[in-house]
Computed example of a mutant assay.
Amino acid sequence: MGFRFQKRIKLGGGLGLNISKSGISPSLRTKMGTFSKSGYSVKTGISGVRYQNSGCLLLFAFAGITTFLIFTLKHI
Rank of each mutant, 00 (worst) to 15 (best):
G45K: 01
S27T: 02
A63G: 04
L15E: 09
T66L: 14
T30W: 12
A63D: 06
G16Y: 01
G13V: 12
F35P: 00
F35V: 04
F71M: 13
F60Y: 11
T34G: 08
R50C: 01
S47L: 05
S38T: 13
T67F: 06
S36V: 07
G12W: 05
L11D: 09
V49M: 10
S20I: 06
G55T: 09
G33A: 07
P26Y: 06
F71N: 12
G64F: 12
R50K: 15
S27P: 00
Q52R: 12
S54I: 00
S25N: 07
L58D: 12
S22A: 11
G23N: 15
R29Y: 10
G13Y: 15
L58E: 14
F35A: 03
K10Q: 09
I19D: 10
T44P: 06
L57R: 08
A63R: 00
V42W: 02
F35S: 02
G33C: 04
S47Y: 03
R29I: 04
G39P: 03
A61L: 14
G16V: 00
G14P: 06
L28E: 00
M32P: 00
N18V: 13
L15I: 04
K10L: 05
S27R: 03
G33M: 01
Y51E: 01
K43H: 14
K43V: 01
T34I: 08
K10R: 13
I65L: 15
G12P: 02
F60G: 03
S41W: 02
A61C: 14
T44F: 04
K37M: 12
G13K: 14
Y40P: 00
S25H: 08
K31M: 14
G13P: 04
C56S: 05
S54V: 04
I24C: 13
N53V: 01
